[in-house]
Design a protein around this nucleic acid. Structure first.
Length: 1179
RNA sequence: GCCCAUGUGGCGGAAUUGGUAGACGCGCCAGACUCAAAAUCUGGUUCUCGCAAGGGAGUGAAGGUUCGAUUCCUUUCGUGGGCACCA
């Protein structure tokens, strides 16, 4: 009976599916274990051997834990939103949902063949509405939360509002923001002020607190992709995907306030088992630094220049100050004399792209003419502007200490600024010394102090004297959370009059509409902005009625306003409200009628509307296009309360972009012409202002006034992946993102397997989401992943052929270089030979000189060329070059090119001629040179695995040829999971041989079944238990390559012992099942089916077997073959009892002939004896 | 430039705590089976001197600590990855 892996694998895969063997219950008495893979983006390219590596590693672990008695969650799904699907849609006109579905099916088919133990009933896909419903829901939770710095956790925004109403924002100052708030001088306010703010103003302020917020800031804009990118998606000034240039641009964007979590993200790293490299990367990305903010008075002014420094101890070494070009103080401190120069410099800086700035690090800057005053010694310090100071970090200004900082030093040298040496002889005047261990000199009261200690001293003084304060800074920025793209989660947000209203949770999911094309919308909006019927709210939205802020204002405002709703066409209030309002305003005054006549006559050439609703108000007259409102006071606007209400309403309308002009009844009736003139003037003024305003902060202006408009950006790729590990726990729940009981049971992911490429992206974001969900009480752990295992990349091993390209001459001139009619290839040896020779002789010229190079290959090639095309050199010295070409690895066996297959691979290679490794020629259809041992050897190189390099290997091919079990084991056998290593298909034979050998322990090709139920001997049990020990330990620590090797050793030893006993084989089968599940399942069933003792187990899966238990009694040895060294050099080995004492060992060893020989008659000084290890005789 | 990994036969790699360097597999060599080939099996395989017994060298390089170093320390070189004016 032979090992028919195809039949076996098919049979058991079907059986597993039919019996739902991998289905996991949330309800189990067993302890839980959660093994998670980073879910894949279902690309259209299909799998290569690198992709399943991590999945196999996790699968082995999941199966191992199941055998160990755990209830194991091991799910799989798809990260299905993203750019490539959309790009593909643009190019091929196929809807992303369709291509994504196809890709998923294709992926699944490939994965299924490898025999994973995924519970597919829990599959999730981020682009499914049933999934992104909850992504949107979590977004809303973030939107409705703020980070309470006092309790250090996320809390409901309602509690913040409550606190504002009670005490203003004194206890919750606005967190650091990258954005300019309208009316930004109102960064602190009292409870009374808060209550007086308009809704718009209040909401703008709340936006500065929300964990998910919309702001107007500098973003990485990629023109080619038509979207904004997060910082980690930009590498060296170009996009990570596609390498397109990226520029800084101010745009309206959504952000996650991840910076509030910086400290907890940092601290959490200590509680998780990530690799040091991974922790390091995240730590660097967060970039926490301790220092001080110090205020420097500006000479001759009341202004202060605030700088951030980590080295306050160097305060007496400050020789100049530098501010960023964008720094707001730049214009005030620049003196008249330097104005032109400064402006020129700023213009130059602006003209440079981010990329140029990064590429060339030239020293540039300009003196402002202004001086700052050192608070400690009152020295006046010149202030410069330079690019090297970044506006976004610290305060955008630095105190420069050229003796201690390299950049400051270079700057000082460049601008000839005198350098104060505060380091004494630790500073050589030629380069800065950033040490903290020098003794300070020239430093006033700090002189003689060690810098390290001085930091604390100065810090104290700074705080006590009020010069500044201790400050912690982070490199990390808030994460840009919106993309101007189609294929992503829509934001559950509706904009109206500049306010973002969250959708009600009952309205989720907000589904993506179908679109015709994927072009970006206007003003940097996403493609969804083109879908008017989706983006404009056609029907009243319950969320608008329910919006807390709306309710609140309606309640607080004057009673009359309550019922002033708006028609659905322009707003989202109910029709009922509108009717009510209209009725109340039925009785128009004389003045109103008079003005309406004039305006309707179209005297001004523009269209006015009467009694038109805007926001929650009804206006008297309005020019919609021109955004001008004209109000005539009726007879009932006299009491104070009404006036206040009017003012408030004027402000609100102003904020949403309308100018307001007010007349009294008397004015209108008394002098209607002057009133019309005033309106005319106002219209003109308004026009010119509107031009300046430019692009709006909200999508509102694009679509017209007063409309409710959906947010038309979509969420980035990392939105769905930030929480998917929770959805697996409760994937079909339609009422919650994940039931708390389920998340309490499954808890943290015990092992998370994936690549390092997500170190600062996905991993940080999902850690933040987890912390936020924890804070808000939805889950009970605040780190998602307990242990992270990073699999290495499998690199491709490329093969090359070397084509000879002769240079043709016609009429004394080099005509062209082209391959011969019968393309000529030389074997690697000759290529190398020629390469070396030519390198030796001609490092400057290309080409080869016949009179200098006299190598075998050269002659051979020439003979070959000349035999084909004699006129080729036209009397010139023969000349040619050699092209290195990628050849498909499928045409190569190891390094041996399959010449026949190569000829058939492309029409132009049909007549290819090879100069083979031994110098013989292999030409098509010629007997000459063909036959045994003619080999064409390819060159090899390790590169990234990619289709364009023809070095991809399709797992399906290997599964066809060797089976899934072999494939799985070989991927693991290749080397440590964490390490990157090149793929080499050749070695797979060895693993396949092992499985066949293992099979032969059970079945003989002729005799059939040979396994038996005889009692095992001590030697056999020793082999078994040695294997159990090694394999269990290795599996536990993910050292799969050595575990596979232990299986091999064990099989080899059992074969030597001719052992085919069930007592030995069954435990091995169970252990093997996590590595090679199919063969193990087959053998397990066979062992039980035909067994006299285990007949009842015939239909039990090996998956439900128990892991064998190590009995170390079988491993006990009575003696050991000790290595015996003399002076540390191994000379012999001796079998000595483990019982032997030091004295006995010494006697035996010193009595040994070999040892005696090496002692050469001398007496040993010492005999070192380590029990069970070694003996070393020291002379 | 800074930070972090990493360097072992022809190749992938092993040596878990400082204790016989090269497990296991590929490749290669020899042999068995075969008319022959493939497949399979058996043996050998770090380099070097030697017929052998046996010696010498050897974990990127140079030093050090130690009875003993692939393992720890210092310096240095190569490769891979991360960050890059972060004050």
């Amino acid at each position: 009976m032979e090992y028919k892996f195809q039949d076996i694998e098919k049979k058991w895969q079907d059986w597993w599916t039919a019996n739902e063997i991998y289905k996991v219950s949330n309800d189990s008495a067993k302890p839980k274990y959660y093994v998670l893979d980073m879910f894949p983006y279902p690309s259209g390219k299909g799998l290569h051997v690198g992709h399943p590596l991590g999945y196999i590693a996790s699968d082995i672990y999941a199966r191992y834990k199941r055998l160990k008695g755990f209830n194991v969650l091991h799910p799989m799904g798809y990260d299905a939103f993203g750019l490539p699907a959309e790009q593909y849609a643009i190019e091929h006109g196929i809807h992303p949902a369709v291509s994504t579905k196809q890709n998923i099916e294709n992926f699944r088919k490939q994965l299924d063949r490898i025999g994973f133990s995924f519970d597919w009933s829990r599959q999730v896909s981020t682009s499914e509405p049933s999934y992104y419903k909850w992504t949107q829901w979590i977004f809303l939770q973030l939107f409705k939360s703020f980070y309470n710095r006092q309790t250090k956790k996320a809390e409901s925004i309602d509690s913040l509002i409550a606190s504002f109403e009670k005490e203003g924002n004194s206890n919750h100052p606005i967190p650091n923001s990258q954005f300019l708030i309208p009316d930004s001088d109102a960064s602190t306010f009292t409870a009374d002020q808060w209550k007086m703010f308009t809704e718009k103003h209040q909401q703008d302020i709340l936006m500065e607190y929300r964990l998910a917020y919309c702001g107007y800031g500098e973003v990485n804009w990629c023109e080619a992709l038509g979207t904004v990118l997060a910082n980690d998606e930009v590498i060296n000034g170009v996009s990570e995907r596609g390498g397109h240039p990226v520029v800084k641009k101010k745009l309206r964007q959504w952000y996650l306030r991840i910076t509030e979590y910086a400290d907890r993200l940092l601290g959490g790293l200590e509680t998780v088992d990530f690799s040091e490299a991974m922790k390091e990367m995240q730590t660097n990305w967060i970039g926490k630094s301790y220092g001080a903010e110090i205020d420097f008075r500006i000479a001759g002014s009341d202004e202060k220049l605030r700088v951030f420094t980590t080295r306050p101890d160097t305060i007496f070494g400050v020789d100049f100050m530098v501010i960023a070009p964008e720094h707001e103080l730049g214009s005030t401190i620049t003196t008249a004399k330097h104005k032109d120069e400064v402006e020129q410099y700023l213009a130059w800086v602006k003209s440079r792209s981010e990329r140029e700035r990064m590429a060339e690090k030239t020293i540039s800057g300009v003196f402002t003419g202004g001086y700052a005053v050192n608070p400690f010694d009152f020295r006046e310090i010149p202030i410069y502007i330079s690019e090297y100071v970044l506006a976004g970090y610290g305060t955008g200004a630095i105190m420069a200490v050229p003796s201690g900082d390299e950049r400051d030093f270079k700057f000082a040298k460049h601008f000839n600024i005198d350098i104060t040496n505060i380091l004494g002889d630790k500073f050589n005047g030629e380069e800065a010394n950033p040490t903290k261990d020098a003794e300070l000199v020239n430093s006033n009261f700090l002189t003689g102090m060690l810098m390290r200690d001085a930091i604390k001293v100065v810090m104290n003084d700074i705080e006590n004297l009020g010069y500044g304060k201790a400050k912690v800074n982070y490199k990390m920025r808030d994460a840009a959370f919106s993309r101007q793209r189609y294929w992503g989660e829509p934001f559950p947000i509706v904009w109206r009059n500049g306010i973002a209203y969250p959708l009600d949770e009952t309205e989720l999911p907000l589904e993506l509409p179908n679109v015709e094309n994927y072009k970006p919308g206007p003003e940097g909006e996403g493609p969804l902005a083109n879908v008017k019927e989706w983006a404009l709210i056609p029907i009243p939205s319950p969320s608008m009625e329910k919006g807390a802020s709306v309710q609140q204002r309606l309640g607080d405002d004057a009673a009359g306003a309550k019922n002033f709703g708006a028609v659905p066409k322009y707003s989202v209030y109910t029709p009922m409200q509108y009717e009510l309002a209209k009725n109340m305003r039925k009785n128009h005054t004389e003045a109103e009628d008079l003005l309406w006549q004039q305006l309707r006559n179209n005297n001004l050439g523009i269209k006015f509307r009467r009694q038109h609703p805007i926001d929650a108000y009804i206006t008297d007259f309005i020019a919609l296009q021109e955004k001008l409102i004209v109000e005539v006071d009726g007879g009932y606007h006299e009491n104070e309360e009404q006036k206040l209400y009017d003012e408030n309403r004027t402000n609100v309308l102003k904020e949403i972009g309308f100018a307001m002009i007010r007349f009294t009844n008397e004015e209108v009736i008394g002098n209607i012409n002057s009133v019309l003139n005033k309106i005319k003037r106002e219209l003109q003024k308004n026009k010119s202002q509107q031009k300046e305003v430019g692009s709006s902060q909200t999508p509102l202006s694009i679509h017209g006034e007063g409309l409710g408009v959906r947010e038309t950006n979509t969420m980035p790729g990392y939105a769905g992946s930030s929480w998917y590990f929770l959805r697996y726990m409760d994937p079909h729940n339609n009422d919650e993102f994940c039931n708390k009981k389920a998340s309490d049971y499954w808890n943290q992911v015990d092992v998370y397997v994936g690549g390092t490429e997500h170190a600062v992206g996905h991993l940080l974001y999902s850690r933040m989401w987890t912390k936020a969900l924890f804070d808000l009480g939805y889950i009970s752990f605040d780190e998602p992943y307990k242990k992270l295992l990073n699999q290495g990349m499998i690199q491709g091993s490329s093969r090359f052929v070397y084509r000879v390209v002769p240079h043709f001459y016609i009429n004394d001139k080099l005509h062209q270089s082209r391959p011969l009619k019968k393309p000529l290839f030389v074997s690697y040896k000759f290529y190398k030979e020629i390469q070396e020779e030519s390198d030796k002789h001609y490092t400057e010229n290309y080409g080869y000189s016949p009179d200098k190079i006299n190598v075998e290959a050269y002659t051979k090639i020439l003979i070959q060329i000349e035999s084909e095309e004699k006129e080729i050199f036209d009397g010139h010295a023969p000349d040619f070059s050699i092209q290195k070409l990628h050849v498909d690895v499928k045409l190569v066996d190891g390094v041996d090119l399959n010449m026949e297959a190569f000829r058939n691979s492309k029409p132009e290679y049909k007549n290819a001629v090879f100069i083979c490794e031994d110098g013989r020629i292999n030409a098509p259809l010629s007997i000459h040179g063909e036959g045994q041992g003619v080999r064409y050897i390819c060159g090899t190189e390790v590169e990234k695995m990619s289709k364009s390099k023809f070095n991809t290997v399709d797992p399906s091919d290997l599964v066809d040829k060797y089976g899934a079990d072999t494939f799985r084991m070989y991927e693991m056998f290749l080397g440590p999971v964490e390490q990157s290593k090149p793929w080499d298909t050749k070695g797979i034979e060895g693993v396949h041989r092992f499985l066949r050998k293992f099979w032969r322990l059970f079945y003989d090709e002729i005799k059939g079944k040979i396994w038996n139920e005889e009692k095992a001997t001590g030697a056999e049990l020793k082999v078994l238990h040695k294997a159990i020990k090694k394999i269990e330990e290795d599996t536990e620590r993910f050292s799969y390559n050595t575990a596979v090797s232990a299986f091999m050793v064990c099989a080899n030893e059992l074969a030597d012992l001719k052992c085919s006993k069930k007592e030995i084989l069954e435990p091995l089968v169970i252990m093997l099942s996590s590595y090679a599940p199919h063969i193990a399942e087959e053998l397990y069933h066979e062992l039980h089916k035909a067994s006299s003792t285990g007949g009842g187990l015939g239909e039990a899966s090996v998956l439900d077997a128990a892991y064998p238990i190590l009995n170390s009694a079988y491993l006990v040895e009575s003696s050991k073959q000790y290595p015996i060294s003399v002076n540390g050099k191994l000379r012999t080995t001796l079998n000595i009892s483990l019982e032997a004492s030091q004295q006995e060992v010494e006697e035996i060893v010193l009595g040994n002939d070999v040892v005696k020989k090496w002692l050469d008659g001398k007496t040993p000084k010492k005999v070192i004896f380590v029990k069970n290890k070694m003996v070393n005789v020291v002379v």
